[in-house]
Write a protein that binds this DNA or RNA. Sequence first.
DNA 1: AACGGTTCCAACCGCCTCATG
DNA 2: TCATGAGGCGGTTGGAACCGT
Length: 558
Amino acid sequence: MENEIDDGEPLKDQNGSELNDEGNGGSAGGVILKKGPWTSTEDAILVDYVKKHGEGNWNAVQKYSGLSRCGKSCRLRWANHLRPNLKKGAFTAEEERLIAELHAKMGNKWACMAAHLPGRTDNEIKNYWNTRIKRRQRAGLPLYPPEVCLQALQESQIGQSTARKNDRDRGNHGSLQKSSNEIHDAIFDSLKANQGLLPCVPEIPNISADSVLLKGLGSSQYCNFLPSTLPHHKRLRESTTPFLGSNVMNRNGYYPLDHIRDNASNKIAQYFGMHAHLDPCPSKNSLSYGHSLSNGNSSTSKPISEAVKIELPSLQYPETDLGSWGRSPTPPPLVESVDVFIQSPRNSALESDCSSPQNTGLLDDMLNQAKIMSSSKKHYSEKSSNSSTATPGDGADSGAFNMFETEWEDYTDHISSFGATSMLNECPAISATGNSLDEQLPAQIFSGNIAKLESAEHAWTSNSENQSMSMFNISRPDLLLASDWIEQNSRNGQNPAINKDAMATLLGDDLATDYKQMTAGTSASSQVWGLGSCSWNNMPAVCQMADLLYKDSLKMYD
DNA sequence: AACGGTTCCAACCGCCTCATG
DNA sequence: TCATGAGGCGGTTGGAACCGT
């Protein structure tokens, strides 16, 4: 079906439709509005109209110029192709870097991003980004370049330090937590409201755990935070946006990095708070975040039976990527769940809780598991202390690893078929080439990180022959990234203190101070964080492993 | 050369916000 | 306060171009 326009040029209406894009019947004043590609004649008419009347009042274009296009189509054509000073051609490296940076900050706000890129249109940026997502996902590369991750991390560090300082100045230690918990509650209320909407989505604790580690595990999560490509944006628009009461969640259902930074720290804190009431030596963390769990019933512990479903960015893959999982006999929900586990690095305790076969992964179960773990603490301590040569750190490590070994082995049985693939998909880029967004071959990434794995693994397993640790490492891209940073920074002659700060940030702001104290190696900190310390023993394994990684990196630095 | 898969990109669609009456 | 229209925005679609086999 073809239309004719005034210049007589045959129109190849790609839709074969005579309806206009307003869906109002395709006519304006009885004139059939054309759809499909614009001709040069139409462009000329539109340009001429704008010259005479200026931009705006697009619906008048058809009226005054006789152009058989609806106002929307005219506006789009003008904005994307005809307006002056449009920059055509491929994006420069600087533009690419800026886009990644902007996307990390504001998410899919294409128009806002376009405002930062003179001559570029939102459509152009959007197309570029969507292509980039596919390409990088297919290549198993992180979405954001390392420097963007690092920058986000540094900004987060600065921002949170400032926020905490301001908070202390106000003498209100609970304000941040309160506001954050409000958001947190809103999120989970929303998740509750969204249940059943989507086919393959994790349950609440997975969500929580996922988010919990965003901050604690930092940039690997940042780097791998993948936007939704699910085709259910309409439902999302109805369901997810309103619940937040803001636009923190993108329309496609994922959170910009800024939001992740803000909320993940609170979630991790909530997680700690959850442990805190089991902890006979309450830390400041527990004091700060106790409120949401003071009754042992946080917002995250909404009825377990309600398998809340959301579209979480960190587990969203385009169908092509899901297809890559297709080799597994595991049905999609499990696949996704597994991927949550792998892609969203988290402390092993939490992971075990969420993933162990005997565990539903829901918060109540997590609480039960935590209680069991707490009651078993003595056992673990004894087990750890059996190694007379163990240093406090080693002891803690081995203890921590032993603690979760059983569950981990159970888990690895389930994910073993996914480990390598996920590793390929989720390994943060090792490339430290700076601005280049060039992609690394998956094999390179894999081999590169494997080397780091071996290094870190060697440190972790020096006192044990725990094979499960290998899988443990492989599924910890956060640690890989951390080691990447440290290694790179060390090679670059950067002050180890910087690395320490970075690691502290990885652990979350609330842990950062304690972590720094710990790594300072003072006798006081040793007391605080020693093997016998309740605080340390209750600390998620991520902290302990990060500590090991850090120590390992310092050796390399020396 | 033919074919199939992928990428790029222009355009459409539907929803939202805001201004106006 | 509500209805309406214009403009804006983000997600999606579909065809052309490109590329590898």
